[in-house]
Simulated assay, not measured.
Amino acid sequence: MEFPTWVTERVIARQGALHPYKALKPAETAFVVIDLQNFFTQPGYMGECKAARATFPAVNRLANALRNAGGHVIWIQTCSDSADTFWAHFQHDLLKPELSQKRLEQLSAQHSGFQLAAEVDAAEADTRVIKKYYSALATDSSNLHDVLQKKGIKNVLIGGTSTNVCCESTGRNAMMLNYRTIMVHDALSAFSPQEHEFSLQAWMLYFGDVLGTHDIINRLS
């Protein structure tokens, strides 16, 4: 992924190099894949991000490579059960009534929308985490931080959808919890190319690195 000159110049001026993480120990690395559920990826669902489907091959490629190297793959799934209570302002103030009801129904743990897309290769040995809010690392959203700590994770790779919402939100919290955090640009998607690009530009400027699956796999060896 190419960044504008003004972005690269500011990043290098701050940290001395465009990409700060030269090697990643697989045992200390987790690929955190966010919201690649039917609700967010498949036609007919309220939250469909069409671009997400094009990222499935990259997600599967990196997940497989990291597993084979001895690393960890964690699938994050949003669940809307009781969201009208624990996230009432979002459900009632930021969504029209008909959209609020549709989200509550289609992201319920009992609905097909909650399930991971059939095209993603989630292995039985992978970890699954259920989250409530945009960020899996927000207070009371999920147990992801405990999972990462128990596995001895120092490096967090972020994939999934959408880049500038749940993925960036989780990534920012991960960075501020002292994880070396990398956004995997070809394993991420947003509702428009502009949102994807602007999110990753801001990420490079302030929070961590942006790499593609090929570059990350090379750093695992």
Rank of each mutant, 00 (worst) to 15 (best):
F3G: 00
V7A: 05
A13P: 06
R14F: 11
Q15T: 04
K22Y: 03
A27V: 11
T29Q: 05
D35W: 08
D35H: 07
A51Q: 10
A54S: 14
A54G: 13
F56Q: 02
F56L: 14
P57E: 02
N60V: 13
N64P: 03
A65S: 13
A65Q: 01
R67I: 12
N68L: 15
N68Q: 15
N68I: 07
I74Q: 03
T78D: 06
S80D: 01
S80R: 01
A83K: 10
T85R: 14
H89P: 04
L95E: 00
S112C: 12
G113Q: 06
G113S: 08
G113R: 06
L116C: 07
E119P: 09
E119D: 15
A122F: 12
V129T: 07
K132N: 07
A136I: 06
D140H: 15
H145V: 10
Q149A: 14
I153T: 09
G160R: 00
G160A: 03
T163V: 04
C166F: 05
S169P: 03
N173Y: 08
M175F: 12
H185T: 11
D186Y: 03
A187D: 04
L188N: 03
P193L: 04
H196V: 08
Q201E: 11
Q201D: 02
A202T: 06
Y206P: 00
F207H: 11
L211Q: 06
G212R: 05
D215W: 08
D215Y: 07
I217K: 00
N218Y: 10
